[in-house]
Design a binder for these strands. Structure first.
Length: 422
RNA sequence: GGAGACGUCGCAUAGUACGGCUUAGUGCACCACCCUGCUAAGGUGGAGUACCCUUCACGGGGUACCGUGGGUUCAAAUCCCACCGUCUCCGCCA
């Protein structure tokens, strides 16, 4: 949720942000009107309630003879109070509903426009070239006995798969490598619940435009999370944090579930876009003024990891229209996937500033002793999808795949993965 | 799945049988000051969160909050209902 004070005092800033996102600018005026209405009804209710409280004291201390008459008077007052309370609650609900449609104001410098308007900040590594026809990750995965899509479909349907043998080991190795790096960088590992209550899912902002992407279990009123970000953000909800010793940083390890509802027909081959995968997610709670520095720090950790794995990539500043409503800025890192002749997203790192924290009521104490919402950030450090880029980038003509040196310690020292039976 | 107990201001507790004298008491911890040669002990005072109004500001006034949400009532921590959570016992089970 945006800061209601900012809305009141600087609506133009929010309008500019809505505009570059391609979101509704009128919603800002609607919110302002709803705020005025809300405050008026609150005042009316509180004044009535104050007189009712006064009256209650009179009734309590009145001699029994007068009590009856006073109670009769108080009854009519009670009717007014009730009506005013209802009006105020309604106005509050209307205000909240409108304000929550407003997205987090983007940070200065975020490119305007939609998905294609991203700005490339830097690229790393030459695009790999082959003196043979490179195989795609699924063909390699099948040769290596690593990926089994057919049986995944048999058991669970399209976009499900088995990772088997070296494929399973590869994923565990990646996750562990990422975890060790996160530990070294001061992150606290956390294995998170993947089923969460509605208010947590809603608080992280995923029930908005992503609602149809999410698995829901009506019998239990629980949502399956598409990223451990949800549980990591909910972890400290309704708390006042002590950030005097620095940010709180967590590395969440979880399976992620996504319906991929809007992506019919896209990336149907292999494990690029699947309903279930594993991810190691970094999450940081920081003082708002440190959020942008933390954002860069997260991206640096991701780049270190990608470089260690010998992948070629570019870092992009995602355009305003392609940000989720919670993010004020988002850096994606996309690795080169040879057979697609394209960069594909491997990590996504969002600075949610205080937007998410305000919804989840996560605060810290300022120097003056007041409370204020913290900043939250999240970013990927490893996912199943990375296997795609690793297999394709490091493949050799005979279908074997070189294991990047940095990954070998987590694979028992294996330096080359060879086709099964070869 | 069945039966029961419980959820109060950071922690621990009182208050709930009889609704109004509770702007929720007490202890510990906390902060400021006083006192004692240091420490300990003692004394005095202060402390929650959110929102609304007012003020240039310091501040002042008000409303709500006793797990959450409803309800009864002139009035609810206290009565009623639902939900969430914790604990105990029984049953079942990978």
């Amino acid at each position: 949720m945006i800061d209601p004070v900012l809305l009141r005092e600087n609506p133009d800033l929010i309008k500019r942000s809505q505009k570059v996102r391609g979101a509704s600018v009128e919603a800002v005026d609607d919110a302002l009107a709803a705020d005025a209405e809300r405050r008026a009804t609150i005042q009316a209710f509180e004044a009535l309630r104050a007189s009712q409280n006064q009256f209650g004291k009179q009734v309590a201390s009145a001699p029994p003879a007068e009590k009856k008459a006073l109670v009769a008077q108080a009854q009519s007052l009670a009717v007014d109070v009730k009506a005013a309370a209802a009006a105020s609650a309604e106005a509050e609900a209307r205000f909240t509903a409108v304000v929550r449609t407003l997205a987090n104001p983007v940070i200065d410098g975020v490119p305007a426009g939609g998905e294609e308007n991203f700005v490339t900040l830097r690229t790393h590594g030459a695009v790999p070239t082959f003196d043979f026809e490179p195989r795609d990750h699924l063909e390699l995965g099948e040769l290596l006995g690593a990926i089994d899509m057919a049986r995944g479909a048999k058991v669970s349907g399209a976009r499900f798969y088995f990772l088997r043998g070296i494929g399973a080991r590869l994923e565990i190795a990646l996750m562990n490598m990422a975890l060790d790096r996160a530990l070294a960088a001061g992150f606290v590992p956390l294995i998170t619940p993947t089923l969460v209550r509605p208010e947590i899912m809603d608080g992280t902002g995923f029930l908005g435009e992503h609602a149809d992407e999410i698995y829901y279990l009506p019998a239990d009123d629980l949502y399956l999370t598409g990223t451990s970000e949800v549980a990591l953000a909910g972890y400290h909800s309704d708390e006042i944090l002590d950030l005097t010793d620095g940010p709180l940083r967590y590395a969440g390890w979880s399976t992620c579930y996504r319906r991929e509802a809007g992506s019919g027909g896209k990336d149907t081959r292999g494990i690029i876009r699947v309903h279930q995968f594993n991810k190691l997610e970094m999450f940081a709670y920081v003082l708002p003024e440190n959020a942008e520095a933390e954002h860069d720090r997260l991206v640096a950790l991701q780049e270190d990891m990608l470089q260690a794995l010998g992948l070629s990539y570019r870092v992009i500043d995602v355009a305003a229209g392609d940000l989720g409503s919670s993010a004020a800025r988002k850096f994606d890192i996309e690795a080169w996937v040879p057979t697609q002749n394209a960069y594909r997203e491997l990590t996504s790192t969002s600075n949610c500033t205080t937007y998410q924290a305000r919804r989840l009521d996560i605060r810290y104490r300022t120097e003056s002793g007041k409370t204020a919402p913290v900043g939250t950030l999240n970013g990927t450090l490893a996912t199943t999808r990375w296997i795609v880029a690793i297999l394709e980038t490091h493949q050799q003509e005979d279908g074997s795949v070189r294991v990047p040196e940095a990954l070998r310690p987590w694979l028992g020292g294996i330096d080359v993965i060879r086709p099964v039976g070869a």
